[in-house]
Computed example of a mutant assay.
Amino acid sequence: MTDVNLKLPPTPEEYGANERADSPETRTEDLFSQSGDSISEERQLGLDIVYPLGWSGSYYSGYDLVTVHGIRDDYKTAWTQEDGTWWLKDKLFKHVSIREVDYSYEVDEEAAIFEVDGIGLHAERLLTAYSKDRASFEETEIDRPIIWICHDLGGTIVKEALCRAITNSKKYGKIAILTTTIIFLGTPHQVLSVPDLAEQIQSTKIF
């Protein structure tokens, strides 16, 4: 019998390691670690990059992973499991180099999201902060691709943000055209009218 040496395909772990080995690290990590050696575990309102827990490293083949939570979520724990695991970085995108960028907003009874143009307001805040953030990239990372993950009404904020971004690239840069993936989790995609959507939002208040 003839011996045959079979070359098995790489395991997911090997694939991730090889992909990163072929893609050198960048200076982006330096740009967003201004606090030196300090480690932050607390998410903040607005656009927030929790360094280094939301990072798997910064590589030229990496992605920005932008999250927007829903109106029933606690923004401080929306993207972590009970044991504190950052499930997007550590599980869903375990083999991909990502920089998790969270956009958070208040959901109490008096929150801006429940105002007449609350969705537009947060879409604008998200775009303004995120475009400013990306302007800090070194030249070789300006075209870093974007993945969006949004839950519930967070998906509506993202849709509004991308509609604005694609019609005003001079103000917001390439955010729209560099979007490669949008993952909607329980996002309402069809309503009869804006007043109908507003009524649905009001009915979800659980205070």
Rank of each mutant, 00 (worst) to 15 (best):
D3N: 11
V4C: 09
L8V: 11
P9H: 06
T11P: 03
Y15W: 09
A17S: 10
N18F: 12
S23M: 09
S23I: 03
E25D: 10
T26M: 00
D30W: 01
F32L: 07
F32R: 00
Q34I: 00
S40L: 07
E42K: 12
L45F: 07
D48V: 02
I49A: 04
P52Q: 03
G54F: 00
G54W: 00
G57W: 01
G57S: 06
G62M: 01
D64P: 03
D64F: 05
V66F: 00
T67E: 02
V68Y: 02
I71Q: 00
I71F: 05
R72F: 11
T80M: 12
Q81L: 13
D83T: 04
G84Q: 10
T85Q: 09
W86V: 13
W86I: 13
W87I: 03
W87T: 00
W87M: 04
L88I: 14
D90W: 08
K91T: 12
F93G: 03
V96G: 04
S97W: 00
D102N: 15
D102K: 08
S104Q: 02
S104Y: 01
Y105T: 02
E106F: 05
E106A: 15
E106W: 05
E110N: 15
A111S: 15
F114T: 06
E115N: 09
G118I: 01
H122N: 10
E124F: 07
R125F: 03
R125C: 07
R125K: 13
L126N: 02
T128N: 11
T128Y: 02
T128E: 08
K132G: 13
R134L: 08
E138N: 08
E141C: 11
I142E: 10
R144D: 03
I147K: 02
C150R: 03
D152C: 15
L153W: 08
G154Q: 01
G154T: 04
T156I: 15
K159N: 12
E160W: 04
A161H: 02
A161L: 04
T167Y: 08
N168L: 07
S169A: 15
K170L: 11
K170D: 09
G173M: 02
K174G: 10
K174Y: 07
I175Q: 01
I177C: 12
I177Q: 13
L178T: 09
L178E: 13
L178S: 12
T179A: 13
I182M: 11
F184K: 11
G186D: 10
G186Y: 05
T187D: 09
P188Q: 05
P188M: 09
Q190Y: 15
L192Q: 14
S193N: 13
E199T: 14
Q200T: 10
I206G: 09
F207K: 12
